[in-house]
Write a protein that binds this DNA or RNA. Structure first.
Lengths: 333, 333
DNA sequence: GTTAGCACTTGAACATATAGAGTGCTAACA
DNA sequence: TGTTAGCACTCTATATGTTCAAGTGCTAAC
């Protein structure tokens, strides 16, 4: 448990360091944040904070810098009820309404979300989705392409649509019936549980096609989420991104979505902003999920240096979450 | 025009530098490549080569390094008829045949191409496509989703299929007829030229839907190529990728496909390997197009430091071009 | 045209000195 | 017991000088 003054000092160090990027000395804290005690007192307290792991010293004669634990304490205890200003909200709403005419389906909304976040945060931003919560295909359509191939289109329970080309001999007259049979079955239960034999018995002559369809659906029932990255132009604004190791971590995070999916799932499960501080090569991820009604659709967030402006980013992502969720809820279901 | 010995020296410098990464001294060239003359003679020739712009000196007391012009001369004049060994070809064919069962449509082939190139080259690899040469939608299908939305699926002349959700009031009974009307029209000419009024006169009650369809097709007739990047794990193998500026260029190339599209188009137009050396922040792109029969489908290649093993990469990409083109040509049309 | 020989330039590595920042500690104080 | 002034200490950053080896360019001779 921290004393009141220790809290003030920790907050001072975090905010001052976020602003300046330089280690913070006891003198600065004393003059700007605790004018009623001397720098020697601050030094004593800083020793305690360091022992507890909230701050560190880059080297013995430097000031103090927040540790990940310090940032976490700051975020969890000192940013509660932190909100965007009405002006900032207005600005985001305006950008969103300018965007809206160009955004026509789920994926475009998701893509636009990353763009929006990057624009406003001036950091790298990503978005991810759509996920199918239950991962169930609910309807499908079959359309002939040529004598050996059929187009399979399917819709998941979250309204996401995708397609696939299937190769099999078939007779066109059966396609519509087969579509209906599958759709009726899938309406009730997932692809893993429907009775294949029953379908085969209804249209035995289409066995190769039916098998291909089931095969495809099983593969695809792990819905086809994509991730989008925006804001690479802002890399130059961030001094921490002059370090090759940090940049390499950034590249792997940008290009390998599996590295981020864990965080995304954590955010979706918690339903709220999820912050991972410095866990992946000196980078912080702040992730927020978004929903259509109560269905989780995906997540979005920023990737930046550990030293980022949490006081702005966190309420920003919370606000964007509510905007996007509202957009999605109006359009779907 | 270079003398014979100058050519030998240039080749020596390029190949030695590609191997070692260190500036090459006259002594090394003399002992390893021109034992019949002295290092002083080599020095004289190197002075000439430097004056002509084929090589440079990092600093006055260092050896020589090839300039982009030097690399280009090397590639264009000293790598003609350079081929992969039968062993290497076998290896690639084997990887490809292992891959084949998992690769079911055009996009998956394109994606797998980048993976394959990265595997073999141990560099960052990308692939891009499918492009629609004429960019014409040839057939379309309309499928009802609910009372306000229709699924539009369309196929371009290169066999690429995509879909879009369209929002409009409509009556389901007209959908099939409308699909056929559009498909018949599009079979003959592009979306920009078909007679909208005629279609409207056939089904005047579907005006909102028809307009939405045409709108969508016009937007989408710029086909929906995607790019894939693989091999980010190999970044650590490349010493040049410890420089922050180089890494930043890499990030922008990886994330902003528009930066690469110019090179891709150049490769597609030339029909062959296209190399851009050091034009974008100390990086080299080697790009090769691939075809289905004679239709260009896309392009693939590597991104790496200027100092890369062209002697291997260029015949590698040529070989992959022929493999992929063959795969595509068998499957389509 | 080629070569041996040498003076010259430069970078890299290392040692040294200095100034400044910020601390930790001690002893004194309220 | 908590706070403070004062000071010695440590470390970084910077500048400066020295040495070493590498590799060149040039000259004069072949």
């Amino acid at each position: 448990m921290l004393t009141e003054r220790e809290k003030i000092i920790l907050k001072a160090i975090v905010e001052e360091y976020i602003n300046t990027g330089e280690p913070i000395s006891s003198k600065v804290v004393a003059t700007k944040y605790c004018p009623y005690v001397s720098s020697a007192t601050i030094r004593n307290d800083m020793g305690v904070l360091e022992e507890m792991g909230y701050i560190t010293q880059p080297h013995p004669s430097a000031g103090r810098v927040p540790s990940p634990k310090g940032y976490r304490y700051y975020i969890e205890n000192m940013l509660v009820d932190c909100k965007l200003s009405p002006q900032q909200k207005m600005r985001i709403r305006k950008i969103l309404s300018n965007l809206e005419p160009d955004v026509r389906d789920l994926r475009e909304i998701i893509k636009a979300t990353s763009w929006l976040i990057a624009q406003v945060s001036k950091l790298l931003a990503f978005s991810y989705g759509p996920i199918s919560s239950g991962k169930f295909v609910k309807r499908l359509w079959l359309t002939p392409i040529d004598e050996n191939s059929v187009l399979l289109i399917y819709m998941t329970e979250t309204g996401d649509v995708d397609h696939r080309v299937i190769y099999a001999k078939y007779s066109p007259v059966n396609l519509e019936r087969l579509s209906n049979i599958f759709s009726t079955k899938l309406e009730k239960e997932g692809i893993d549980k429907i009775d294949i034999k029953e379908i085969l018995s209804l249209l035995p002559e289409e066995e190769p096609l039916i098998k291909e369809i089931i095969d495809s659906l099983k593969k695809e029932s792990y819905s086809y989420a994509e991730s989008y990255i925006e804001g690479t132009d802002y890399i130059d604004r961030i001094p921490e991104f002059n370090d090759p190791e940090t940049l390499k971590s950034l590249i792997s995070i940008i290009n390998k979505e599996e590295l981020v999916i864990e965080q995304i799932n954590a955010a979706i499960n918690s339903g709220n902003v999820w912050t991972s501080i410095g866990e992946r090569g000196n980078l912080t991820l702040v992730v927020v999920p978004y929903f259509a009604k109560d269905f989780p659709i995906g997540a979005a967030g920023v990737v930046g240096p550990i030293r980022m402006n949490y006081k702005f980013i966190i309420p920003l992502l919370n606000f964007i979450k509510s905007c996007i969720s509202e957009m999605l809820s109006v359009r779907w279901r």
